[in-house]
Nucleic acid binder design. Structure first.
Length: 297
DNA sequence: CGGAGCTCCTGGGGGC
DNA sequence: TGCCCCCAGGAGCTCC
């Protein structure tokens, strides 16, 4: 499940292997992969697959940026300066730099070749929750589609005091808030569970009852986990996440609660508990993270 | 408009 | 062995 450490690892790979290169050809092999692409006016048939490929052909990719779990590569020629290739990996999306001669992956969705005859960039996505699009960018160079995404907790622009205020105004449970990308970005199910364990907070804790010191403790825990995971190039829990070279991340060995149901808490030895919550799994230590009296879902 | 539920999707794995 | 169902979950959408 690509979250901040995984997406940032992919971004670094793209910066190294794709930035500065010019797209020669684009092959869209599955319409769902470009479902978020909006064909521009006067761009021929109202066919997102055709328009996406046409918009990308000939573009020189000038940089690789990330906001939360989104990646984008702005185009740099003058007439394309306000457009970018936007990518979200969803649950199982992979951006792979592969030799043009390499065999097709089973779930290859989009294939891009480059004018320099170097390796392809391939978008492979088993569960098809991910997507690519060519989109307009605003005056700050940010895709309009993702202006609503908050800064992530490793970003120096992230304002702790603003987050404390915004969180305490919410009327929901803390995990639901952590997964809301308009409040804090880059955190998904794995790192939310890990961060809450580090801060000894239960996922159903009502946000409006949280003290500023508890929220700071949570940010400290999240930052520790995200930083350590990034250093290991991410978590490859179900092997669907790999970086642009096809290598796995190593942080799954360091997970404290996620995927450890029934096994002892490494702090107190109590068996880790797994609950269904928000139509997904949540992992807690029942002793370190007691359920609040007034739980909020 | 904030909050919460629904939905998209595929392949691995467990149960029978 | 084969088949069915559950499970993994990010985020846009819809409804209240």
């Amino acid at each position: 499940m690509p979250e901040l450490p995984e997406v940032e690892t992919v971004r670094q790979g793209l910066e190294h292997s794709v930035v500065g290169r010019t797209v020669r050809d684009v092959e869209v092999r599955h319409p769902r992969a470009v479902r978020r692409h909006v064909p521009g006016p006067g761009n021929g048939p109202e066919n997102g697959m055709v328009d996406f490929a046409a918009a990308l052909r000939g573009a020189r990719l000038a940089a690789a940026h990330r906001r939360g779990k989104y990646l984008w590569l702005p185009f740099d020629s003058a007439d394309r300066s306000s457009r970018a290739l936007l990518a979200h990996l969803g649950m199982s999306g992979q951006l792979l730099v592969r030799p043009a001669s390499a065999a097709q992956e089973p779930h290859l969705r989009v294939r891009m070749s480059f004018a320099d005859d170097g390796p392809d960039l391939r978008f492979v996505d088993q569960r098809t929750f991910g997507a690519l699009a060519v989109v307009p960018t605003d005056g700050d160079g940010i895709p309009v589609e993702i202006e609503h995404i908050a800064h992530d907790p490793l970003d120096e622009r992230f304002d702790d005091a603003d987050f404390v205020r915004a969180l305490r105004r919410r009327r929901t449970g803390i995990k639901r808030a952590l997964l809301d990308q308009t409040l804090i970005s880059g955190v998904g199910n794995i790192y939310a569970d890990e961060g809450l364990w580090h801060a000894r907070l239960h996922y159903a804790r009502p946000t409006e009852t949280m003290r500023a010191a508890e929220i700071e403790r949570l940010l400290t825990g999240l930052r520790a986990v995200l930083t350590a995971a990034l250093a290991k190039r991410g978590t490859s829990f179900d092997s669907l996440y790999i970086d642009v070279d096809g290598s796995s991340g190593g942080f799954d060995q360091s997970l404290q609660v996620y995927g450890r149901a029934g096994r002892p808490c490494r702090r107190c030895g109590t068996p880790i508990r797994k609950d269904r919550f928000m139509n997904r799994s949540s992992h807690t230590c029942p002793r370190c993270q007691p359920r609040p009296r007034r739980a909020r879902w």
